[in-house]
């Protein structure tokens, strides 16, 4: 099973700590002082409507529409998750349209090449931009570790099994109460 981060709207307070942690985890060590409104592109987004506050992010689907829609095989299943091989991304946005959760985006970043000690501009490089579960981060997804109300959890096979077990128990209990 692919792992994914799940958000509990009954615990979310809409504070966006997860968004900042996400942007920082992907800042290549630039730190908070590297953050600025124009370049702020967290892969998790807090959504606030009249009745709901919660974070939305990639579900790492088992049969992912983004993977299926990519003409260049840039999106792959790896480490029990859906990952983007950025060097293969064309920026065609098929995946953006295919994602039913609105959590895939295509962003452009300046492309550069080092040559003889100089930095040469190669225009821009497109990137399919979504949650990568912080796969290279030792302590797991940054958003999960900072959420002040523990509204975010990393769902893997074990956590999923535990959730299902609890739900089944509750269902059984409720069935017994109905019968009584």
């Amino acid at each position: 099973m692919n792992r994914f981060v799940t958000a509990n709207p009954s615990k979310c307070i809409g504070c966006r700590t997860c968004e900042v942690a996400c942007a920082l985890a992907h800042s290549k060590g630039a730190g908070v002082e590297g953050l600025a409104p124009d370049s702020f592109k967290p892969r998790i987004r807090m959504v606030k409507t009249a009745d709901v506050s919660t974070a939305v992010m990639c579900h790492h689907c088992e049969d992912a529409p983004c993977v299926n829609s990519c003409p260049n095989n840039a999106i792959v299943y790896r480490q029990h998750s859906v990952q983007v091989e950025q060097e293969r991304c064309l920026g065609c946005k098929n995946c953006v349209l295919a994602c039913p959760f609105g959590v895939m985006d295509v962003v452009t970043v300046p492309a550069v090449r080092q040559f003889a000690g100089m930095t040469l501009s190669l225009g821009v490089k497109a990137q399919a931009h979504k949650c990568d579960l912080c796969v290279d981060r030792e302590s797991g997804p940054a958003c999960v570790s900072v959420c002040p109300t523990s509204a975010l959890t990393l769902m893997d096979r074990d956590a999923m099994d535990e959730t299902l077990r609890r739900r089944r128990e509750r269902a059984a209990q409720e069935a017994a109460e109905v019968a009584a």
Binding site: I13, C15, R16, E19, V20, L24, V32, E33, L35
Partner: peptide
């Protein structure tokens, strides 16, 4: 609001917090 504090002389000088709301 959660991201800023008091008269904002402190949080207004924090990059992350200014990024979220200005």
């Amino acid at each position: 609001e959660v991201g800023h504090y008091s008269c904002r002389s402190m949080t207004g000088n924090c990059a992350a917090l200014q990024t979220l709301a200005d």
